[in-house]
């Protein structure tokens, strides 16, 4: 009978290690996913001045909209703290959406290869931000769920794993349609 005892003990040990490592791996994946969002946001900061420079000449009457984008960008870059930052990002997304909508009125813009290319780049960046956030939230959900369901909650409780925060979108951004998909972007 002793071998049975040892076998059960071994199984429990294996399960313990496996669950613990799973939780640690998820925690690192969450960190990585959060960094991925930052990478995309940085890319957006870099692309915006290019876009504004390129369309400036064409959109003489929309100077204040363009200025709004520039301002929103610098506010977003300067903002600190999760709440302030997410609000600034929202404002930036909205002002970019406005520019995209206004660009519809300028047929000569749509013939410009540079503009089309920039537009595609910004579209994909916007999508990538959205998808990176979505993936982050999926991971957070799995992580938090593992900490609550039996039996992995025993291990999570013992080793004091902390819940992760969801990335929640402010109410205003939810109302904004995904600009990218509404425009006939296919070249």
């Amino acid at each position: 009978m002793t071998w049975l005892f040892w076998a059960v003990l071994l199984l429990i040990a294996v399960w313990l290690i496996w669950t613990y490592n799973g939780l640690v791996a998820l925690r690192h994946q969450i960190d990585n996913a959060w960094k991925q969002i930052d990478v995309q946001l940085k890319r957006r900061y870099d692309l915006i001045p290019n876009l504004v420079e390129t369309v400036k000449g064409y959109m003489q009457h929309e100077q204040d909209t363009l200025q709004k984008v520039i301002d929103a960008r610098s506010r977003a870059m300067a903002s600190t703290g999760v709440k302030e930052n997410s609000e600034a990002q929202t404002a930036l997304t909205q002002s970019l959406g406005q520019i995209f909508a206004l660009m519809e009125n300028y047929p000569e813009l749509k013939a410009n290869h540079n503009v089309l290319r920039l537009q595609e780049e910004l579209t994909t960046t916007e999508n990538q931000i959205a998808f990176a956030r979505q993936y982050y939230n999926d991971l957070v959900m799995r992580y938090n769920m593992k900490q609550e369901v039996f039996p992995s909650n025993v291990i999570a409780g013992f080793f004091r794993f902390q819940r992760s925060e969801f990335f929640s979108v402010p109410e205003a951004e939810r109302a904004v349609p995904r600009v990218s998909l509404k425009l006939p972007l296919f070249i």
């Binding site: 994946q29 996913a33 991925q36 995309q40 290869h113 089309l116 290319r117 595609e120 780049e121 579209t123 994909t124 999508n127 990538q128 998808f131 990176a132 979505q134 993936y135 999926d138 991971l139 296919f186 070249i187």
Partner: peptide
């Protein structure tokens, strides 16, 4: 080529979404 560029971007998006 613009189409290829777009495809590359779309794949990047989906790689992000799937992790």
């Amino acid at each position: 080529i613009p189409e290829h560029r777009e495809l590359h971007n779309v794949v990047t998006e989906m790689a992000l979404a799937s992790g």
